[in-house]
Design a protein around this nucleic acid. Sequence first.
DNA 1: TGCTCATATATACAAGTGTATAATAAATGC
DNA 2: GCATTTATTATACACTTGTATATATGAGCA
Lengths: 226, 226
Amino acid sequence: MTSTINATAAVSAFAPATRGPGRRPEIDRERIVQAALKLLGPDRSVATLSLREIAREAGIAPNSFYRHFHNVDALAVALIERAGRSLRVIIGAARQRVGRERSVIQSSVDVFLEQLDAEDKFLHILLREGYVGSREFRQAVERQLCFFEEELKTDLIRLSAMAGGRVMRPEATARALTRLVFAMGTRALDMGPNERRDLAEETVCMLRMIMVGALAETGAKTERRQ
Amino acid sequence: MTSTINATAAVSAFAPATRGPGRRPEIDRERIVQAALKLLGPDRSVATLSLREIAREAGIAPNSFYRHFHNVDALAVALIERAGRSLRVIIGAARQRVGRERSVIQSSVDVFLEQLDAEDKFLHILLREGYVGSREFRQAVERQLCFFEEELKTDLIRLSAMAGGRVMRPEATARALTRLVFAMGTRALDMGPNERRDLAEETVCMLRMIMVGALAETGAKTERRQ
DNA sequence: TGCTCATATATACAAGTGTATAATAAATGC
DNA sequence: GCATTTATTATACACTTGTATATATGAGCA
């Protein structure tokens, strides 16, 4: 069980280089990514996928995998980043369609829950894979969530200013909102439509609590570090 | 790869029965549980443990495992339940030592973070294994979190009544507090002491926001809370 | 035509897995 | 003593895994 890999292959794999001599690639990352996505399901997390299994699904030889990813973890990170990116696009679009703060909460939660049933399993990846696998793996998910928080933070500041209020601790508020939605979304994965409706309502209620707390003036005491 | 198992073995395994004839057991579930716990770590989740690996660590023959658990998933569920139980005891004890609502939040978070470094890895199990593995597996974790929420709910009602206030939606509030603490605790696993301190402060801030929101009469204005 | 690349596959191997089957070990009751 | 019953181990099998090594394929260029 050596852990090193054929050096020449690894090097050439990720520098697409200018089209010089040599056989033209017939396999691209996309093909492998799609195969991996196809294998994911309610009971299969990225961390449980094996290289051979992915290669089989992609219809390529096991070793061909190495020419496109260093290992399965690298593929997982790519999946996570891709999932985060496309999800931010979706949520961002939803946020732009509304103007007032309350609707933002409601519609964001709606969009989020819609994505649970989308045939691309991007949201599943961020939710379920959350905190297993290698350190690198987990940090990739964390990074994506931080992106969400960052965008939400600026939105919070902008919206509350428009409403004449002021969010006490924008980054903490954004984080609370984000983490709670993800936590509740993860629960929703195992639920039927009816339960999900209740969960959505409850989630909106939770988020409103946070917003009320964040906008409250009485935070003077809690604002201070101790 | 057959999935059935020697019937006689499986049956006799979980009916301790009255002491009749036959060799006396030298292996007990505890030994296996301990072995599994020893194998867990920041990069090893219960779901990644193999039967043989656990047996090796426990110093027993692979097949002996079957006499005590149907499979690794069953062991995982046992671990989860045990983790939840002992954690509830710890948190419950911490809650009883304090009287007023503010301190409850602070001290609960403190106890929680303390447990991150405890040598028994019970909290790790509930945090990291959260939502991977089989359905049965996930439901076991969910069940434990619900226990937490239930206990917290009654505490919330009692405490807010004592303070003359009233929690708007106790179960949603309890759930928001619980899930947020678990989400933040999961992040803490990958952090050093300094970062954890900041995270603890931020978490307390978040929880206070929720409490303020939960105690507010309407969604609009806030009620003073000490 | 060959040479030299980049790319993809074939083959092979050591290691690990779950578990069926059979054997061994220790206790009981006769 | 012996048969019976339970607990544990030993052996074996078919299968999967990651990956090292070697080979084949196809493109550009001399």
